[in-house]
Design a protein around this nucleic acid. Structure first.
Lengths: 333, 333
DNA sequence: CAGACTTTCTACAACGTTGTAAAGATGGTC
DNA sequence: GACCATCTTTACAACGTTGTAGAAAGTCTG
């Protein structure tokens, strides 16, 4: 049942190379020969051996996508877009989960996958661009997500500062003045966090609202539980926000739960805004106003960067591409 | 930078095969030789070429996991467990998303991945076991999820009937009598649906409550929107349920949203129970009472079935394994 | 210390594929 | 009909790895 070119060749009465030529659509094959070969191909249900092809060609047709966790909805959705974008190049995507753990991230960047993959699309959480740049693996890598320091590496992100500014401005425009923020992190660990915080501050400044550090709650992780505890901390600390900008949707959903537990209504008492547009936010109670990054564009740009590196043999200055976003106003703010 | 055994061998002054022996931990290598080779290995940062290994061995060390969609939380969580279980065999997992589309499912079963994979763990939505059994690909395949008809194929599932019965019984025990169900499907398309419906009916019967078909709402898909519309349909049809068993958590979250919109409180007015234990349900308002399948066990059993097939060359009668579950009582019921 | 056995290392071949080069067939031109 | 160009097909080698078989050197047994 495991059929090789050789078996097909014998059945069709031609050489192995002729079968190979037919399989690969080489033009100069006599029509009758082609027909005979195709018949044999079908009868034997021939499938090319990809290992042999890869060995011969030096390409596997597989790229890796490394993300912190697939059960973070943002990354699950992103993964699907990457798979779709890769399919246009006939590439298979292998997904690696790093857990955001530095050690695992380093191992992935250094090429755990060995010669299994042609390139890597990487959304790191713990490692900086500079750390990643001095990796041992020569295969091309594209970084996803905003980094202040992305080293000499190709890179795709949305303009986080602008997006955060825009959604904060919306909160102000709808009459809120005591706007809290949830999700800040130590500068070293989270570029997303610091950029979103910057956008938030810029919006306040532009509208002449004084920035109050007591209204900013940090969150080491960005899961629901973190959002809930951060919100609770804010409420119990005595700052009485009338709105909160959460640095991602998951935090926002957690924050809404905490607000609910404190007997506060959303958006009546406190408006809530998020970031990422995960599916849950479209069905939460109330639905979540959020920044919608163009995930399909992010995926497409990343795959195309990789394709360019693979085509040109990795040289050329690092590219830094920006994908689009929009703010979707729903019920929560 | 791309180093082969040959380069290492030259550097260490030994034959290619000796390097291979060191890399593979062959015992009979003189310690000094081993040390010299290991030094060369490190200096050149040798990585084995997996394509060549696969070609030689006939094994790729990659298994595929085919699921409907990764942004369905249940499958994202399951995927992580499968990756972990596969890691114990040093296998890499390649995830395929079928979208639940029959054509895509057929293509996956017939081996799109060609010779890239050693085996397949498949959670089909559209195709029956019998349809899947007559596939063209000879590689071992393990089915996940309950099927009434799973053909002559290895298969891992939890006892859906028992689990549905148990959680419905809990609803009854807590005093509910007008218990609705959301998620029924035409018998042909959804074995999960029909088994959960069966468990629901059994629980009613055991407690002497007459089954009322008007209290059962169907849902072609099991997304939030489907749960919300199904719940709304029930409420507007005049049946006044005091509880609802949703055939998965996502439906339940959608149903809770619809209840909220109709001004009904959960669990005070209507208790809600789900199935799957997705992370969202642990943070929803209120948190969701649900059936918790042992996803780690499902993954482990599936991977081990695959390992057994690969070791024994695919013969032996199809196995049918059952993984555990428990009912987690939270706020919603 | 002969013989048998073990340890250490190596050459070779094969896994299935495709690029190269070249041979043979066909067709066209003068 | 000789020549050249193009079409069609083929043999061969190579991609990097590892199993097999065997050579050479070392160790043990009686």
């Amino acid at each position: 049942m495991r059929n090789r070119l050789k078996d097909v060749a014998e059945r069709a009465g031609v050489s192995v190379k002729t079968v190979s030529n037919v399989v690969n659509g080489y033009a100069h094959v006599r029509p009758e020969t082609r027909a005979r070969v195709e018949e044999a191909l079908a009868e034997l249900n021939y499938r090319p051996n990809l290992s042999a092809r890869s060995l011969r060609s030096g390409r596997t047709g597989v790229i890796a996508l490394a993300v912190p966790e697939l059960d973070i909805p943002y990354f699950a959705e992103l993964a699907r877009h990457v798979v779709d974008a890769a399919a246009t190049h006939d590439w298979t995507v292998l997904i690696d989960q790093t857990g955001g753990v530095p050690e695992r991230e380093r191992v992935v960047a250094d090429g755990v996958r060995g010669q299994l993959i042609d390139g890597l699309i990487f959304s790191p959480l713990a490692l900086t661009g500079a750390e990643l740049a001095r990796r041992a693996d020569p295969r091309p890598m594209v970084l996803l997500g905003e980094r202040d320091d992305h080293g000499p590496l190709d890179h795709v992100a949305v303009d986080n500062v602008a997006a955060a500014r825009e959604i904060t401005t919306h909160l102000i425009a709808s009459g809120r003045r005591r706007i809290a923020a949830i999700g800040a992190q130590r500068a070293t660990s989270g570029a997303s966090a610091s950029m979103r915080l910057t956008g938030y501050k810029q919006a306040l400044a532009a509208e002449g609202i004084r920035f109050d550090p007591r209204r900013v709650a940090s969150a080491a992780n960005w899961h629901r539980a973190d959002g809930a505890t951060a919100m609770a901390r804010l409420l119990e600390s005595g700052v009485r926000p009338d709105a909160v900008f959460c640095f991602n949707d998951t935090l926002a959903l957690g924050a809404m739960r905490a607000l609910h537990e404190h007997g506060l209504r959303v958006p009546d008492d406190v408006a809530v805004a998020g970031f990422d547009d995960i599916e849950d936010g479209r069905f939460s109670v109330p639905t979540l106003t959020t920044v919608v990054p163009d995930k399909a564009e992010i995926a497409r740009l990343a795959v195309e960067l990789l394709a360019k590196r693979l085509a040109t043999g990795s040289d050329g200055a690092p590219a830094e591409l920006t994908a689009g976003y929009r703010v979707d106003l729903r019920e929560s703010a």
